[in-house]
Simulated scan of single mutants.
Amino acid sequence: MGSLAPVLFVFVLAAALVTCSALFVPKGPHQVTIRTALMLTFAATYLMWMVTYMAQLHPLIQPIYSLRTE
């Protein structure tokens, strides 16, 4: 079944991308805007993936099986 390993692996990947976007954006008049946009993009993408992944692992509504056969 699923484990916590993919969530942690993708978190480390997202953190690395955020760090790279903070360090390697070229200097210029819009450096802060570009940095902020990249960091928010990586954070939002990770959160959306993690919520979707966890919802598939632990659904709120269980399947209902019907024992009736017609």
Rank of each mutant, 00 (worst) to 15 (best):
Y65I: 08
V12Q: 10
Y53T: 10
L23Q: 14
A43S: 15
K27A: 14
S66R: 07
G28Q: 10
F24G: 03
F42T: 08
A44E: 11
A15E: 10
A22T: 03
V12K: 01
L57D: 07
A5R: 14
L13M: 14
S3F: 05
L40Y: 13
M39N: 11
Y65W: 07
T41Y: 13
L57S: 09
A55P: 01
A55W: 05
P59T: 03
C20Q: 12
V18A: 14
A5W: 11
R68D: 07
L47H: 00
M39Y: 06
A5G: 02
R35A: 04
V7F: 00
F11T: 05
F42I: 10
T45P: 05
A37G: 12
A43W: 02
G2I: 08
V32H: 04
L60H: 01
Y65T: 04
I64G: 02
T36F: 12
W49M: 05
P59I: 01
M48V: 01
T69E: 11
T52L: 11
H58G: 01
F42R: 02
V12W: 01
I61M: 10
S3K: 06
H30Y: 13
M39V: 09
P63G: 08
V10I: 02
V51C: 03
S66D: 09
G2N: 02
L67E: 05
S21G: 01
Q31A: 14
T69D: 08
G28P: 07
L8N: 02
T45A: 15
I61C: 03
Q31V: 14
I64L: 12
V32P: 02
I61K: 14
I61S: 12
P63C: 07
H30W: 15
W49S: 04
C20H: 11
T69P: 01
L23H: 12
L38W: 05
L38M: 11
L40I: 14
G2F: 08
T36A: 13
M39L: 05
G28V: 04
Q62A: 14
L13C: 12
A14W: 01
S3P: 03
V25I: 07
A22W: 15
A55M: 00
Y65N: 07
A37Q: 13
M39D: 04
M54L: 15
V7W: 00
R68H: 05
